[in-house]
Amino acid sequence: MRIVIMGSGGIGGYFGAKLARAGHDVVFVARGEHLRAIRENGLRVSSEVDGDWTVDAPAVATLDGQPPADLVLFCVKSFDTEDAAELVRPVLGPGTGVLSLQNGVDNEDKLARILGAGRAVGGIAYAFVHIAAPGVIAHQQLARIVCGEFGGTAPGRLPAFAEAGAAAGIRVDVVPDIRRSLWEKYVFLTAFAGATALTRMPAQAVREVPELRRLWQRQIDELLALARAEAAGLDEGVAERCAAFLGSVAPISYTSLYHDLMQGRRLELETLHGHAVRLGERHAIPTPTLSAVYAGLLPYRDGPPKVT
């Protein structure tokens, strides 16, 4: 397959590198020092699962002049969705899908408004990854993508991607109700990201410190109340699955919200806790814990606070 990776950070870089290593035609879109490093030295993956390895694949700043892609893996931060959507237009052929592997539950709606019906594909990336240095992706665990079409559009493109992923060592599950899957990840990720970023502590602490575990659990409870109000279709077992997933992640695992905070980058806070707080206001559902976490991280939303 010809695959464009729009946003070559942790998620895009890791999955794109695995696809390129398996022989697929992969083009990485990156910027700044990360782009320069990939061009000069290739993209290196340092994985606790399958060791260190490097792929040499094209890396570009724009897609002007590039041929149409079979699929675009859309992996930019949620606050860059609109700008990045405009950048992928040159590689959109008649059947090209744009598979969002972003945090949050409304990116696909933004993509559909900008690129038109039938383009946006819902997706969830399960992988603990981050940029360790320009041109270097660190991977701790998991290599799974869940994806699904909205309204049954272009039924052949996701099975083809699932085959490509399997050949690259990526588990790709194609599901019929992607909105429900997006919400299930949103519930877990928002609570886990809030706990790790607010306290600067990893998964082990979230599991083992009783007060921190209660902070995590109260976020889960509030998010599930919002999911019911939004008719997200989550079943009664989702809380148990969230707890099981928390128990399965590596003890030193953090989230991208934590890594962005510690590296002084802009946070996806509005996509996670901000969105939940606004939904609570819309549905008149109390969100005291989510609101407290949001308030605690808000000064860092746009980078390190400027204190005078």
Rank of each mutant, 00 (worst) to 15 (best):
E230Q: 13
V238N: 02
V206N: 04
G16I: 08
V105A: 02
H34Y: 11
A84P: 04
G16W: 11
S291I: 00
L257H: 08
H34E: 10
V249T: 10
R218Y: 14
L298Q: 13
P67Y: 06
V293K: 06
G23D: 12
G7K: 03
E149R: 13
L158I: 04
S181V: 14
L87F: 00
A120D: 09
T62W: 04
G51P: 01
R36I: 13
L234Q: 06
A127P: 13
N107E: 08
A57C: 06
T255H: 11
E208K: 14
P58F: 03
Y14V: 09
R241S: 10
K306H: 05
A125S: 15
G116K: 09
E163R: 12
S253A: 15
E40I: 08
G118T: 12
A30E: 07
H139K: 07
G7C: 04
L111R: 10
E230F: 02
L226M: 11
A85S: 10
Y294F: 12
H273N: 15
D177Y: 02
L223W: 03
P304Y: 11
G12S: 08
V60G: 03
R301Q: 13
V121C: 09
C75A: 11
G169A: 03
A284R: 11
A197G: 12
L234E: 02
P299V: 08
K18V: 04
G280Y: 01
R179E: 06
V209H: 03
L99Y: 03
E240K: 13
R228T: 08
S47Y: 07
R44M: 10
V174D: 07
R301I: 04
A229S: 11
L261T: 04
R157H: 01
N107M: 06
H259N: 06
T54A: 06
Q141T: 05
G32K: 05
G10A: 15
A37Q: 11
T96H: 12
L226Y: 14
A125L: 05
V172W: 09
S100Q: 03
